[in-house]
Design a protein around this nucleic acid. Sequence first.
DNA 1: GTCTATAAAGCGATAGAC
DNA 2: GTCTATCGCTTTATAGAC
Lengths: 189, 189
Amino acid sequence: MARKIAERSDIVPVLGEIFRERGFAGASLSEITQRTGLGKGSLYHFFPDGKEEMAKVVLDDVADWFETNVFVPLGTAEDPEVGIDHMFKATVSFFHSGRRVCLVGTFALDDTRDRFAEVIHAYFAAWTKALASALRRRGFGIKAARATAEDVVAGIQGALVLARSQDDPGVFTRAIKRLQARTKTAPAA
Amino acid sequence: MARKIAERSDIVPVLGEIFRERGFAGASLSEITQRTGLGKGSLYHFFPDGKEEMAKVVLDDVADWFETNVFVPLGTAEDPEVGIDHMFKATVSFFHSGRRVCLVGTFALDDTRDRFAEVIHAYFAAWTKALASALRRRGFGIKAARATAEDVVAGIQGALVLARSQDDPGVFTRAIKRLQARTKTAPAA
DNA sequence: GTCTATAAAGCGATAGAC
DNA sequence: GTCTATCGCTTTATAGAC
């Protein structure tokens, strides 16, 4: 199964980690060549438009993963509670219990957002929408479902910031528990 | 009142905006010279250690502002509810209703955190602690106060991310309202 | 205190051999 | 598909005149 010839999909995860750690502006081609083990020639063969294309592919990859592993289950699980609980599990797993930041969130904060405005907007919109839909099916009213969905998605992002600031994954896992509890009962009017 | 000779304090706010917009890695000295109107000579006169010192001074400036305008009122207001409500007002104002990101949060997400770990840690720890203390005085139990404080501080950070991703300050102001409501009554055990 | 000139290093990107 | 060599530019930082 070992291939000598690299495929683009082999290095996308590595690129993801680099962009997460350094941000878009801070990710240098020299670090990318080192950590992927590929020369610039190979990199530009796979990504003719350079760093911008690398980031775009990584963003699309993340969006695809969430679409398949989180958003679709949220919408299709027969029991919406199962879909929601699965979302929290997948989230904790994907973000390594708060040790790994959200690439899309990181890009959203500085001027990198403007480069990738569409993907970034779509990612969070899809998440919020899928969760609100599941909450509706759980019996939440339209407004409560939307509000709680926004609350949970923002809460996850904020917990990642806070956990990293304190260098304490416990901050993240505690936040997840509270957020999950909030999806069990609709808030008072 | 017009001074020709610049003071360091005159340009700190400008530096703050640049770092907020570009992040630490993305903020270039050429943009800093342009937007401050000062040459490199002047900049290195005020900040001998260059960009790193500029960022440090801005971080300290932000921390001081919050200490004075948010954390102290939280702890000293006779009526803790007044202090908490003031915190939300000051927060909405400081972050321009979600149009301005949190510098400390932005720095916390990527490897910039490691450069300024202490200030970043202290900022969020102080915020959480001051809010928890006010909630205690409002009648929250110790655990409820801590949990709600973490919830609110994380919620604010997440709302900034989400609002920027959607390019919609409404996301932020709605979140603030929900978070504020959550400080009025202790959550069920 | 402010400026211009300059240095040295690193950047993203390209060319061309293999 | 992968590499090395190189281009042109920008970067942070320094030196020294005023």
